[in-house]
C-alpha cells in the first residue's frame, strides 16, 4: 500500500484536474471541486511552513546546545523569529499606548505639492484618528482633499514597524549586493576567449549601451551615439580579420578565406544599413529577432520537457514524492 497507493493518488488527482477544464463553469460540481482543491492545497501548504520552522529550530537549537562557534547569532535569530511571530499573531495592537506627537511648528508648506502619503507612526498600538489617507477616507463619505493641513497622529503596530524598517530595507539590500558581484564578474569573466564568448560579449555590450541614453555622458557620449555603426561594424570586422590572420599564420587557409569573406559580407551589410540605425535600434533588433529566437527555442524545449515529465509523473514512471523510508 505504501508503494502503490501514492502513484495512484497522484495519477487520479492529475487526470481529474486535467478533465476539469472540460466541465461547464457554473455547475455545483465544478464550484465544489475548485473550492475543495484550492482550500486543501492551501492547508497542506501551511503544514510545509511547520516543516520549515521545525528545521530552523532544530538547526539553530543544536548549535546553541552544543555551543558551536557562532551560537550567539542563532540565539538572535530564534529570538527575533519568536518576537515577530508573537507580536503579529497574538494581536495587531500589542504594547502600551505610547503616542508620539508630530513636531510642532513643522513646516508642511514644502510638502503641499509632493505626491506622497504623510504617515506618522509610533511604536506600539494602533488607533484610528483623522488622517488624510485613503484608508480612512474609504470609511467616511465626505473625505476632504489634502490641503497641506497639519495631520494628526496615526499609530502603527510594532509588527508593521518591523516590516517597514527591517524587512523591506534588508530584503532590498541583500539583493543589491549582487550588483557588486555582477560588476566584478563583468571584469573577470567577459573575455573574448572564443567565437561563442565574443558573440555573447558583443550582444551584451550593444544592449548595455542601447538601454541607457549614452549621449548624456559628457565629452564622449554624443560621439559614441553618433558613430554607433562605425564602432560596432568596425570592431566586428577588425576582430574577424584578426582571427583570419591567426588562421593564416597557422596555415588554415580555408578557414582564413571563410573568415575574410565574412568580414567582407559584414562590410556590405554596413553599406546597406540605414543611417538612422543607432545603438537603441540595434538593441531592438537584437531583442526582437535573435534573442527572441533563442528564448522561444528554450521556452518550447523546456515546455516539451515539462510536458514529458508531467506525463511520466501522472503515469507513475517518475515518483518524486516517494521519499521517506519505510
Amino acid at each position: 500500500m505504501r508503494n502503490y497507493l501514492p502513484p495512484i493518488i497522484c495519477g487520479v488527482c492529475g487526470v481529474i484536474m486535467m478533465l476539469h477544464f472540460f466541465l461547464p463553469e457554473n455547475t455545483m460540481l465544478y464550484k465544489t471541486m475548485m473550492e475543495w482543491v484550492t482550500n486543501s492545497t492551501i492547508v497542506v501548504g501551511v503544514f510545509g511552513l511547520f516543516i520549515g520552522l521545525a528545521s530552523l529550530v532544530h538547526n539553530h537549537g543544536n548549535r546553541i546546545a552544543r555551543r558551536s562557534p557562532g551560537w550567539g547569532y542563532s540565539v538572535i535569530t530564534l529570538s527575533f523569529t519568536a518576537i515577530v511571530a508573537l507580536t503579529g499573531i497574538i494581536s495587531q495592537n500589542v504594547g502600551p499606548s505610547v503616542v508620539s506627537k508630530p513636531l510642532e511648528k513643522y513646516n508642511y508648506d514644502n510638502r503641499k505639492n509632493q505626491d506622497h502619503t504623510l504617515i506618522t507612526h509610533t511604536l506600539f498600538g494602533y488607533k484610528d484618528e483623522t488622517y488624510k489617507t485613503n484608508l480612512v477616507a474609504a470609511a467616511s463619505s465626505d473625505a476632504p482633499e489634502m490641503k497641506g493641513e497639519e495631520i494628526t497622529v496615526r499609530k502603527v503596530p510594532l509588527f508593521m514597524f518591523f516590516y517597514n524598517y527591517v524587512i523591506m530595507p534588508m530584503g532590498a539590500t541583500t539583493f543589491s549586493l549582487l550588483a557588486f558581484y555582477m560588476i566584478t564578474a563583468t571584469y573577470r569573466a567577459m573575455r573574448a576567449k572564443s567565437w561563442e564568448a565574443s558573440l555573447l560579449l558583443i550582444s551584451s555590450i550593444i544592449i548595455l549601451i542601447g538601454q541607457v541614453p549614452i549621449e548624456e555622458i559628457p565629452l564622449i557620449g554624443k560621439w559614441i551615439m553618433g558613430h554607433a555603426q562605425l564602432i560596432v561594424y568596425m570592431s566586428l570586422i577588425l576582430y574577424i580579420l584578426y582571427a583570419a590572420m591567426k588562421q593564416f599564420f597557422s596555415r588554415n587557409f580555408i578557414t582564413c578565406g571563410i573568415l575574410s569573406a565574412s568580414a567582407a559580407l559584414i562590410g556590405v551589410i554596413w553599406y546597406y544599413t540605414p543611417a538612422d540605425v543607432d545603438f537603441e535600434a540595434m538593441k531592438s533588433i537584437i531583442l526582437n529577432y535573435p534573442n527572441n529566437a533563442a528564448k522561444r527555442g528554450i521556452l518550447i524545449g523546456v515546455q516539451l520537457g515539462s510536458l514529458a515529465t508531467s506525463i511520466k509523473i501522472l503515469s507513475g514512471i517518475e515518483k518524486p514524492y516517494m521519499g521517506g523510508r519505510g
Binding site: A179, I183, T186, Y187, R188, M190, R191, A192, L201, I205, L208, I209, Q211, V212, P213, I214, E216, I217
Partner: peptide, 15 residues
Amino acid sequence: LYTHAFAIGLIVVGN
C-alpha cells in the same frame, strides 16, 4: 547610465 559606462569600461580593460 554611469554604471553601464563603468561596466563597459571594465569589459574593455579586461579584454
